[in-house]
Every structure is written in C-alpha cells, then in structure tokens.
Write a protein that binds this DNA or RNA. Structure first.
Lengths: 343, 343
DNA sequence: ACGTGCTAATGAAACGATTCAACAGCACGG
DNA sequence: CCGTGCTGTTGAATCGTTTCATTAGCACGT
C-alpha cells in the first residue's frame, strides 16, 4: 500500500513514451503532439504523480521561492506586508515562504541558513540586530537580499522603509491645521530610532508654526497602561496648563491617554483636546472615539520589496535602491469633529 | 566575480580529500579524524560553502521541513500557534515554513501543491473549506497531514482543536459563581459552528443552575461597533430588566458592549454588571476595565500538532488521533472586583 | 613474514528531473 | 530515388549530495 513515490519514469512507462517527453509535457507542452500529451496527462492523473521539486531545482540551479523573514508575524504590519508580498510574488510566478524570527537573532540566523540551503531566489529580511556581516556574506555568494523596514547605511543592498520624521510631521501638522497650538508629544525616552524620528518630525512642524509650542512628556513604555498614567497626569492639570492637542508615539499610548482623559476629567475629544496616534492598529478605529493615526503603506511596501528583489534577480548588476515611503494620515473622530459620526 | 556556487567537490579539492569525506564531516563528524575534520572545515569556511539542500533532499528522499498553512497570519491565534509549532519543530531538528491562505481556497491549494512538490515531511493545515478530498489524495501518496482547529469528521487524519462548548460553559459558569443569575448571551445569528457551540455551553451552564435565566441577544456582526449597538440597547432598558451578567461570543463584541454600558448609563463593571468575552485578544487586558475572557491554549495546540505529525512520520501505521483541548478562563476586572486593581 | 582487527578515507552509484544533440518519420520537390 | 525541411520523440548526460562496499594504512600478536 505504502508504495514508493511516483517518478517521471513511472509516468513515462505507463504512457509508453520516453522520460524526456513527459518532461516536455510538463514544461513545454507546445513541443508535444496533442495525442501524446493527453496520454501522458492521463498517466499523470492515474498515478497521482507530483513533481519532485528537489530534483528540478538541482538541475535548474534555482528555485521559484522567495524567503521572507519578519520580526513578528503577529504584528499586523508584518502580516499585511507578507500578504502583499505573496500576492506580488504570485503574479510573477514565485511563492513566498515565511519565517518568523520573533526578534531572536538565533532564529533569524537559522532561517537565513535554511533559506540559503534551499537556494531561494532571494530573501526579504526585516533584521533583528546588525545583519550587516551576514548580508554581506550572502551577497558575496550571489544571493539577492532586500531589507524591509530598515535602511542599509552602507548601501550594500536595496531596502524599503518608512520616513518616520515625515510621519511625525504629518501628525502634528494635522493638529496645527485643526487650530491647536499647545501640543504635547508622548513617547518613551528610550532612544528607539523610530520614536526619536517621530519627535523630530513633530518639532519641525511646531517650529514652522507661529505661536505653537511643543511639550514632551515621557512615558514608561509604549503600552495602553503607560498611556493611561500619562493621560491621568495631564488630565489633572489646572485648566490653564492643559494642552489642546496630543500626539502619541504609538496607538497604544494614545488609547491609554484617551481612556484616562475621558474618564478622569470628562474632557471632550476632539473639542477640548485633539488626539492622534501612530501605526493605525486594528483597534484604533474601534476606540470609544475613533482614533486618528498615521499608517505605514504596508501593501505598497510589500509589493515594492518583492519588485526590488525581482529586479535584482533579473539583473544582478543593477544598482541598489533605498526606497523610502511617506506614511499616510488617517483622520478619524479624535481630531476631526466632522468625521466623528462616521467613525 | 559572480562565480558559480561552491560545491562539495570544490571543498574536497581544496582540502585534498574525497567528496565522501567532506560529506562525512558534515553529517557524521565522528567518522572523520580530527585533523582531516579541521582541514575540511577550514576549506568550507574559506570557500563559503553552503550545502545544496535540493541535492541532499533528492538523495535522502525527505526534507527536514514542515509546512504550516494558516487561515490568517494576522490573527494572533495563528501567529502564536505558529510560534509554538516552530519551537517544537526546532527541538526535533525540523523547520516550519509558513503559508498564509488568507481564507482563500486557491491560495490554500497553491501552498499544498508547493509543499508537496518540496516533499515536506508533513503538513499542518488549518483548512478553509472542505479539504477532505485534497487531504485524502495527499495521504494516499504518503504525506502526513494534521488538521488544526478543525476535526476531521471522517477521522482520516489526526487533528487538534478546541472544545467551544466547554468554553461557553466555563464563561457562564464563571458568571454564575460570581452570583449572577440574569445572563445575556450576545452573538450573531449566522450559524458559525463556533458561536453555536459557545451558546450551547452557555445554555448548559444556566440549565444546571437553579434560578438562572439565559437571554440571547443577536448582534449584526462580531465587531466592536456591533457590540456597542447591542450594549446601547441593553443599557437603556428599565432597571428591572437589566441583566447582571453578559457573555459575548467574542472579545470585540464584549469591548463594544463595555464602551456603551460605561458611557451611556454609567453602570459599574463588574458591580452592576459582570462581562466576559471570548478569545482573549491582546487588547482585552488593556480595556478600560480589563476584560475577562476565554482563551484557547494556542501554544499547547501548536506543540501538540507538531507532535502528532512527527508521530505519524515516525510510524505511519499509528492510528489517527483527534485531540480536543479545553480552553482556559482568564479572570480580569470585568467579572471580579478583587482582580480589578491588578489589571 | 603473515594474518587479524581496526580506523579512516575513497569513489562510484543513486536520487529524479531537465536539457539537448541526435534521430525517426513523413511530405514534398526536383 | 534522393535531398531537404519539418515535427515529434528519444535517451544519455547533468546537477550536488549521500551512501556504502571497498581499500589503504597501521599496529599487534603469532
């Protein structure tokens, strides 16, 4: 019952043709007469033949697979990026296989090894730490690599990423355009590059606006709980020292701030206080007051990453490109009264 | 510069040994004298040799890879299950590669094809529709398959899943133990098996409790918005018709209900109204009142799925097993006043 | 000197698909 | 009858690794 796997040879025997002919039916149907083609196809169906990809690859020297290594599949940014990458790859006859490093250098290294041994066409990597040396080694062996959500300072390989300075600028510019002048930035001190960039953008926007002031308030973490604490402190200020606009370094913080501000002091959002977050997580649209946010163009990034990779696969000599996207503003009720009803 | 890939032959030449010896260094180091081993290792490092997995597989007839196909990598249930499966596989010397079907039959089929051509050791599938025929065909060709989050009615293959009836029972039992007697179940009419199961469990718990009554309220969807609507309707009831416990078919509904109940009527949770959801999504712990919920044992499921698969790989004759887990209750402030401070 | 026992190294065969030079068969024109 | 051109088919060579029967080399006892 448990017979050995069906090979192309078995198909050839049953159809009464040579192995080369079966291969032609699979890869170059036009070269085969229709009578033969049908006979071979019948044999394939009858035997349940499934092509052995290892043998095919060994001969062809290359696979039709792209390896994607992400920091966390649970993160909607990466899952949506992965989805887009898969779609784009499928359109080009390739398949994406996903590896989840879980922010662990060791797991990242293991996936890089596995993918290289599998001779994938190329890799998309959202690196944990410094993958510089690893990537250089890969490239030396002719493996195309595109970095995701990280630029390569040494320009050794192409990358797609997002301009967080621009994102911070957009968020605060949006508050300013809604007439707010006393702006608070809530973020962690920890020098995450991304938080620092968002703050830099915020400063820039405030600096360009006559009469606007920016105050930086430090949170313990990028969580709802930390946001609630910060929000409580702010909400208890005397009326004269209340901000009229708050920009939080991410949505979790913003939701915490919103909870505190609504419950403790009963301030109206956005009338008394406009609030905007960053990342546009799923839940933001469902907050009590739907939260305005700044979103990375994930689908675009996924597609672009694959395109850059394919570009490099086709013409390895082509020069590296660092593509940096601007994020997009998502206006909801927490900053725009008019939008409030619509949610 | 773009030289052809380094093969085991190149390594052998440089180290002045036979190809078989290099292979032994890689796969059976004990068989090789340490002097030779070091010489070969030096050659490998110097040339940057990376084993060609296609050739290895072709010869070995089997890979060290497990294919995992999930409905949606963005869903925390699946991402956490995937993580656990990866860990468990790693402990057994295998690697999990992930395919995201996105609830699309076509993509599911494509991943099944790709994995089968890659001759993975086996597949873990969380099926979109009726994969019965596909799975049967796979099994006939000797490919081990374990279903995830779905039982195979015909018992053709092993599976891991969760008992949602038990989950519904646990949720309502918890409300009853907190002294609640007027229970409302909020769910969609749509006959999702899962919603129906949870309701069945709820009925059972109420039936066992003297003096308890269960009312079923229908929501339009399983979303926060739908929950807010239902919550609004309930909150506006005259005091005599208010429930003192609500069980929502998922956390999104529960969060919506919570928002409405807190804002519209200012009821106290859990004093006036205890509330429990289902799924324990990330955000539940961060709700204004931390939400009690029922959680699937995702890690356990991921590990068990891999174990069942490995079991079948080792001994294909072993009989199929349907493993059904009980979910676990997560008590938070929305049902237990004592827990409220702790969050 | 010779056999025995052992470790270490060898190298050819095998895995299953693809490729490609060679060939068969046929029609047609001269 | 032969040469030419064309379509379809053939089957051996190839890819890079693993496996395994064989051999080389050496130490030791008789």
């Amino acid at each position: 019952m448990e017979s050995r796997p069906v090979s192309i040879k078995d198909v050839a025997d049953r159809a009464g043709v040579a192995v080369g002919t079966v291969s032609n039916v699979l890869n170059h149907p036009a070269r085969v007469s229709s009578a033969t083609r049908e006979r071979v196809q019948a044999a394939i169906d009858h035997l349940g033949f499934v092509r052995n990809d290892a043998a095919r690859q060994l001969r062809a020297g290359q696979s039709r697979t792209i390896g994607l290594i992400v920091l966390d599949v649970g993160n909607p940014f990466f899952s949506s990026l992965a989805r887009a990458a898969e779609d784009c790859a499928a359109e080009n006859g390739s398949t994406v296989v996903l590896g989840d490093s879980g922010q662990d250098t060791e797991r990242e290294a293991r996936y890089i090894d596995v993918f290289e041994q599998q001779r994938v066409q190329g890799m998309l990597i959202s690196p944990v730490g410094d993958v510089g040396p690893r990537v250089e080694a890969l490239r030396k062996r002719g493996m195309p690599v595109v970095l995701v959500d990280r630029v390569d300072a040494q320009r050794r390989c192409s990358s797609v990423s997002v301009d967080d300075v621009a994102g911070g600028y957009m968020a605060v510019r949006h508050l300013l355009e809604a007439g707010r002048r006393r702006i608070v930035f809530v973020g962690t001190k920890a020098s995450f590059r991304q938080v620092a960039d968002r703050l830099a953008g915020a400063r820039q926007a405030v600096g360009e606006q006559e009469g606007a002031v920016l105050e930086v308030v430090e949170a313990d973490a990028m969580t709802v709980l930390a946001g609630r604490e910060v929000g409580g402190v702010i909400a208890r200020r005397p009326a004269g020292r209340l901000p009229d606009g708050i920009f939080c370094a991410n949505d979790l913080l913003a939701i915490g701030v919103m909870q505190a501000v609504l419950l403790i002091r009963g301030l109206r959002i956005p009338e008394d206080l406009a609030l905007i977050g960053y990342d546009d997580i799923d839940f933001s649209a469902s907050a009590v007051v739907p939260l305005s946010s700044v979103r990375k163009p994930t689908e675009l990034m996924g597609r672009t990453a694959v395109e850059l990779l394919l570009e490099e696969i086709e013409g390895p000599s082509s020069r590296r490109r660092q593509v940096i996207f601007d994020p997009e503003l998502v206006e909801r009720g927490s900053t725009t009264a008019a939008v409030r009803a619509a949610g």
